[in-house]
């Protein structure tokens, strides 16, 4: 079999996922370029989270193609292998290792050998320290370095998780509702951070907060009932009658 040549980083074609007859994804097709940021919007149950599950290997699609960098078939790989390819995922509710310090959370996420023997015998190098310092600076958690992640505020946890994603040095970041539960200032800061990340990496952001999506200023894809309803600039998408009908309302 010859892999189709695609210039895109992530290529989903005709992906269908059914759970007991319910089609969570219905012939979904989507292409994300290198260093592109894409916002995904859509009503609850539109298939946003299922799409992330397919990309990260948590869910196997019933049919369809999911290719990364044109050659890696994501449907045949497990979560760990996909993470190693360079796809990082942030969950909707911030998920960090609450009992570990902020620093250790980042340490565990750093791009390193992931095998049991490698971690058992690993010695922390100065280089790692520098990487952690830089990450802490970037997600503004330098002062919280030695605190347990469980003691952080909601917004700080969101940022720590983004920091952990960056520590993996992924090529593609999947970010599920980063602005949920954040103050206005934090939301604006998060948009800045994501725009900055998107300069060098591809980012897919799932978000309900329209102000936030507008802030990002990127191409928007609206999902509905498991497939793409509309795609384009936010203004174009929000002007789409079907989008107004099923999602934006009025």
């Amino acid at each position: 079999m010859t892999a189709p040549v695609t210039p895109t980083l992530l290529y989903l074609d005709n992906v269908t996922v059914s759970f007991d007859g319910f089609r969570a994804l219905n012939a979904l097709s989507l292409a994300i370029d290198h260093a592109e940021m894409r916002a995904i919007i859509g009503p609850n149950g539109a298939g946003k989270t299922t799409m992330m599950d397919v990309i990260t290997g948590k869910t196997q699609p019933n049919e369809g193609t999911a290719l990364f960098e044109g050659t890696h078939d994501l449907t045949a790989l497990d979560e760990a292998a996909i993470a190693e390819l360079g796809i990082g995922r942030k969950f909707q509710t911030p998920t960090v290792f609450e009992m570990h310090t902020v620093e250790d959370n980042l340490l565990l996420a750093l791009k390193n050998k992931r095998g049991p023997l490698a971690t058992l015998l690993s010695r922390r190098a100065n280089q790692e320290r520098e990487r952690i310092d830089a990450l802490l600076e970037r997600v503004r958690l330098t002062a919280q370095r030695h605190r347990r992640a469980g003691e952080l505020s909601h917004g700080q946890k969101q940022w720590l998780e983004i920091g952990m994603l960056l520590a993996q040095e992924p090529k593609l970041l999947l970010i599920d509702e980063p602005a949920a539960g954040m103050t206005d200032q934090e939301t604006a800061d998060t948009a800045d951070l994501l725009r900055d990340i998107a300069k060098s990496k591809a980012v897919i952001v799932v978000e309900h907060d329209m102000t936030f999506v507008r802030d990002l200023g990127v191409k928007v894809t609206c999902l509905h009932e498991g497939s793409v309803l509309a795609e384009g600039s936010l203004d174009a998408v929000s002007a789409n009658e079907r989008v107004v009908e099923v999602y934006l309302g009025r």
């Binding site: 979560e79 760990a80 993470a83 969950f91 960090v96 290792f97 570990h100 996420a109 992931r114 993996q168």
Partner: peptide, 18 residues
Amino acid sequence: KVLVAVRDAESRTRFLGY
């Protein structure tokens, strides 16, 4: 530390590549 990570957030650990 990975063990504790598995204990507290197994899927997070998986998505980190472990």
